[in-house]
Structures are given as C-alpha cells and as structure tokens.
Computed example of a mutant assay.
Amino acid sequence: MKVDELLKNYTAGVRDFTGVNLSEADLKGYDLSGAVLDKAILDGAKLNHANLAQTSLIEADLNGADLSNANLSESNLVGAILDGAILDGAILDGANLSQADLTIANLIGANLSDAELQAANLQAANLDQADLSGADLAVADLTQANLNEADLNEANLNGANLDGTDLGGTILD
C-alpha cells in the first residue's frame, strides 16, 4: 500500500491497516489517531510530529523510525520493535510498551508518564530528561541506559536491570 492510498482510506473512515508495509514511508505530521497498524512494517518511516494517539501498533516493526515529537498517547505498542528509533520529545503518556524492543532508541525528553514498560528492552536507550513518573518498568532491561535527569517519581522498578545505567540527576522520589 502506498502512503496516498492509506491516507485516502483513513479519510474515508477505514482504520484497520493490519500488516501494511510502509517501510521508509513519509507520514510526517499526519493524523492517524485510532488506526490499527498491528504487525505493520514501518521500519525507517518518518512519523515525526504525527498524531498516533490511541493507535494500535502491536508487534509493529518501527526499527529506526523517526517518531520525534509524535503523539503516541495511550497507544498500544506491545511487542513493537523500536530498535534505534528516534522518539525525542514524543508523547507516550499512558502508552503500553510492554515487551517492546527499544534497544539504543533515543527518547530524550520523551513523556512516558504512566506508561507500561514491563519486560521492555531498553538496553543502551537514551532517556535523558525523560518523564517516566508513574511508569511501570517492572522486569525491564535498562542495561547501559542513560537516565540522566529523568523523572522516575513513583515509577515501578521491581526486578528491572539497571546494570551500568546512568542515573545522574535522576529524580527517584
């Protein structure tokens, strides 16, 4: 499916795009809120400034995608592949990222307040100045992650792996 076809169908009220291949697609700034993109291939896609609030991206491939400043509030990203993705300034409050792969992802200044990140892989992820207040990071792998000046106020870190994690200036109230 091409981008123009997806946007035409979305405008016509279609929301289910399960398994669509939009590898390297330019969807910068578009509104796809409420869409179902489960198992979609969006590796390398440009989704910066896109509205993906309440979107289902279960097991979607977003490897290396640019989601900077995107709105993913209350989206479902269970098991999504976000390896090397750019999520700087993204809004992920209340999102479900359980078992997601965020290895070496950039989440600088991202809002992950009240997000579900149980068993997520955040190895070497950059969460500098991210808001993780109230987030559930139980059993998450944060090995070598950068949590410098991150807000972990009331976050659940039970069983999380913090080996080699930079916690300089982190708020841990």
Rank of each mutant, 00 (worst) to 15 (best):
V139E: 07
L47T: 03
G44N: 09
E59W: 04
A135K: 00
L117C: 00
G89L: 06
Q129E: 15
A53L: 08
D4I: 08
N96E: 12
L132G: 03
L162T: 11
E74C: 04
L132P: 01
N76P: 05
A25T: 12
I171G: 01
L157S: 09
A155N: 02
D101W: 00
Q144M: 12
A70W: 01
N156M: 07
D101A: 02
L152A: 11
L77W: 00
L102P: 00
A95S: 11
L37Q: 07
Y10F: 15
S98I: 03
E24F: 12
D26F: 01
V20D: 01
S133R: 07
A145H: 01
N48P: 05
D61G: 06
D136H: 05
L97C: 09
S33I: 04
L57I: 14
G84A: 11
K46R: 14
D114S: 09
N69C: 11
D4W: 03
D43C: 09
K8Q: 13
D88Q: 08
A95K: 00
L97W: 01
L57E: 07
L92C: 10
A124K: 11
D173Y: 06
D166E: 07
R15I: 14
A105F: 03
E149K: 08
Q54M: 09
L157G: 07
A140S: 10
G29L: 10
I108W: 09
D66Y: 06
A90I: 01
E59K: 13
S56K: 09
N76S: 15
K8N: 12
G44I: 04
I171S: 02
L87E: 06
V3W: 04
I58S: 08
A125P: 10
N161V: 11
L172G: 11
A65Y: 05
L172Q: 10
S113C: 12
L102H: 00
N51G: 13
D166C: 11
I108N: 08
A105I: 02
G44M: 06
D136R: 03
Q118S: 09
L87G: 03
D163P: 02
R15D: 15
K39E: 15
L132Q: 02
L107D: 00
A160P: 03
V36S: 13
L152W: 00
T55V: 10
N161I: 13
K8G: 03
K28W: 06
D101G: 04
G109E: 04
V14G: 04
G13S: 12
L57R: 06
L162R: 05
Y30I: 15
A115Q: 03
I58R: 14
I171K: 02
L122P: 03
